Simulated assay, not measured.
Amino acid sequence: MELQFLGTGAGMPSKMRNTSSVVLNLSAEGEGLWLFDCGEATQHQILHTSLKPSKIAKVFITHLHGDHILGLPGLLSSRSFLGGEDALHIYGPVGLEEWLTTTFQLTQTHLTYQLVFHEVTDGIVFENEHFLVTAKSLRHVIPCFGYRIEQKPLQGKLLIDEAIKKGVPKGPLLKQLKDGEDIELPDGRIVLSKDVTGEPQEGFTVTILGDTRYCDEAIELANKADILIHEATFDMNTGDLAKDYGHSTIGDAATTAKKAEAKTLIANHISARFMPKDITGLLTQGKTIFPELYIAEDFTRFEWKNHKVIQIE
Rank of each mutant, 00 (worst) to 15 (best):
P13Q: 05
K15L: 08
K15T: 05
M16L: 11
V22Y: 01
N25W: 02
N25M: 06
L26T: 10
E29S: 08
G30A: 10
E31T: 02
G32F: 00
G32A: 05
C38I: 14
G39E: 00
Q45H: 14
L47Q: 05
K58C: 09
T62R: 09
D67W: 08
S78H: 13
S80M: 00
L88R: 04
H89G: 13
G92Q: 03
G92V: 04
W99V: 11
Q105Y: 08
L106Y: 06
L106M: 05
T109I: 04
L111K: 12
T112M: 02
L115V: 06
E119R: 14
E119Q: 14
V120K: 09
T121I: 09
F126T: 05
E127Y: 08
E127S: 13
E129R: 15
F131S: 11
L132E: 12
T134R: 13
F145M: 03
F145V: 02
Y147N: 13
I149G: 07
E150G: 04
E150H: 10
A163D: 00
I164Q: 03
K170V: 05
K175S: 10
G180K: 04
E181V: 08
G188T: 14
R189W: 10
L192H: 15
S193N: 06
E199N: 13
E199F: 04
T207A: 06
T212P: 01
K224H: 15
K224A: 15
K224I: 07
D226E: 03
I227D: 09
L228F: 01
A232W: 08
A232Y: 07
T233W: 00
F234A: 04
A242S: 13
Y245H: 06
T249D: 02
I250Q: 05
D252G: 11
T255E: 14
A257C: 09
L265E: 11
S271N: 12
L282E: 05
L283M: 12
K287H: 03
T288E: 11
I289E: 11
P291S: 15
E292N: 15
L293R: 03
I295L: 13
A296V: 07
A296N: 05
K305E: 02
N306M: 04
V309F: 08
I312W: 11
